[in-house]
Design a binder for these strands. Structure first.
Lengths: 342, 342
DNA sequence: TTGAAAGCGGTACCAC
DNA sequence: GTGGTACCGCTTTCAA
């Protein structure tokens, strides 16, 4: 592994000069610079990030803090968006997944004194007050994606779940559905802020649009028998709860596309048709949604994350972001999983 | 940001001792160790990775080199598998995506002298001979996933595409399909090694099972008119080529589930039914496949990647891997996108 | 425009 | 068991 010194020796200059030449600070005579660069090329030289970091105080690392898994549609879109947003800047993107609560706690605890990252992007977490206090005092730039406490962070990009859910409920109403329901996530809604948020806005919208409590229902994972596990059986349970509900809903809003599609599949298995017997609206508009003809709320977390990365870059440069909170809109995409109530 | 020195001062010991205590080398009196740890906790101390790296020569970074995007099903499964495989070891996982050929070239060029990673995991790339030579001489452990030149790397995990394609073709034959076709990826097969590999094995299997060239056909992206872009129109073109083919295939093997599902959708739009008019077999068994009742070849890239990470860990420890090449099997999952030829 | 040298915050070897 | 200290490879003043 060649070092700056090696390059300097071969080029007949000092390490300082090599460093300057490689960083294109413009203070090196172009002739010297040329020579240095060619020597560096010959040696396949590349700077040691550790040494650079240590000397400069910048780690060139951005951490993406998320929960559960990297292989969900949402998270992978975020990763891609962050990656493209950071691309070409020299910053490395490091995913940090908090599978258990302790991971998250430890990470947050250590954050203030942790000199191992220059910037942090995080997705919506159910932070405790103590954690929020800690986060508030953070000295490294932090950008939140879909956070429910945006004011705590230096910047944030949030999806407007409220108007999204309103448009979904409005669609169902226009289609003549008089009894409607929300179906929560496959995983516990306690952890999935977005599902809970959407549920609240669903209820708000329903009330606003004149639905009475007798015509609104909510099905969530947390109501499921604790022994029920595996998405197959959760879906089966959802399906039977919905079918046997005294409120007899004819239209459903699901917290995600994946859930919506699973429900459609679950209904089909017991001979119930979507959209003939039930109208279903999803959320996300993932690639499969189009293929399954799902009516859904389209969101673009890739774009969201890219924007988050761009804000973070500004903040890390010490600049102000032009817009501290950015709200992204979801748009209703009507396909064929919804139809007029019969 | 507290340093080792700060902790040492407050604990009344030397930095060496603090370092040893924090690394639990076992050479520190437990009483001293306790005191040190409590001081460290108080100070919210955490080691500087840059400094540790520089001093120890280990970067504690593993790079995952891949192409195109982080938001594909396959890549996100790999990310998750690598992350879980590396979890708890202190290694950071850093994705490196080569969108353009130049990125890949530059990365490979720089690799031998690049002291910025301790290990490398890479997915199948169409490497040139020069690059392979470079890779062969690498001094950092390298593990390949689904590589077509596994002998170049210290270890690898590969999917057995051959037997997978054989079982798909066999299924179609048993179902009585006398004219069959392979449909290549939505993106250029030139870049997608796996698609090309599968195509070759599809042809091998077909020949082996007695299909003659008159009853075998291949549709690929590269045949498409260059002006055709966007997956919608590519699918439309695939569909019309297939429908107008003089060989009149009645069964198709698609390179991926996503393609298979897109084809089903495309057929449906022109009033052609799957499986009534065409049988289709996908590849991957992504979550949606079940929901769309797709017959497919199930593979588990998460598991594959996790295994790759485990092998890499061994190699980075200087140990031998017990199995240098591991072959993963895909299994045929028969659902309802295939049926007996009419 | 260039060079010398003082760190950056650890690790690990060598003493004691 | 513990402390002293020479690096690790680079950045960044300060001086020339």
């Amino acid at each position: 592994m060649a070092t700056l010194q090696d390059v300097a020796d071969r080029a007949g200059v000092s390490v300082s000069t090599v460093s300057r030449a490689l960083h294109e600070t413009g203070q090196v005579k172009s002739e010297t610079s040329q020579r240095i660069r060619s020597v560096a090329d010959q040696l396949h030289f590349s700077l040691s990030r550790s040494a650079s970091s240590l000397a400069s105080g910048k780690t060139m690392r951005v951490v993406y803090l998320t929960y559960n898994n990297l292989n969900t549609w949402y998270t992978s879109q975020c990763m891609e968006g962050l990656y493209t947003g950071l691309y070409g800047t020299g910053y490395d993107l490091i995913p940090y997944v908090t599978t258990v609560k302790e991971d998250l706690d430890a990470f947050i605890e250590e954050l203030p004194s942790n000199g191992n990252l220059d910037g942090l992007v995080l997705t919506s977490f159910p932070f405790t007050e103590d954690q929020l206090t800690l986060l508030r005092g953070l000295h490294i730039p932090t950008v939140a994606i879909d956070s429910n406490s945006p004011d705590v962070f230096d910047a944030s990009v949030m999806l407007d779940n409220k108007s999204a859910m309103y448009s979904a409920v409005q669609l169902l109403q226009r289609l003549g559905h008089t009894s409607i329901a929300y179906v929560g996530d496959l995983l516990s809604d306690r952890f999935f802020i977005s599902s809970r948020t959407r549920c609240e806005y669903f209820l708000d919208a329903a009330h606003q649009l004149g639905y009475g409590d007798d015509n609104i229902e909510v099905f969530t994972r947390d109501d499921a028998k604790p022994e029920v596990n595996g998405s197959q059986s959760i879906i089966a349970q959802y399906v039977s709860s919905i079918l046997s509900s005294p409120k007899k809903p004819t239209a459903l809003c699901a917290s995600t596309d994946y859930l919506a599609m699973s429900l459609i599949h679950g209904f089909r298995e017991v001979g119930v048709s979507v959209p003939d017997d039930f109208s279903i609206v999803g959320f996300d508009d993932m690639e499969c949604a189009d293929l399954m003809d799902l009516t859904t709320l389209h969101q673009d977390p890739l774009k969201t994350a890219k924007l988050a990365a761009e804000k973070l870059l500004k903040l890390m440069k010490g600049e102000e972001v032009e817009e501290r909170y950015t709200e992204m809109k979801a748009s209703l995409v009507v396909r064929h999983s919804t139809k007029r109530a019969s």
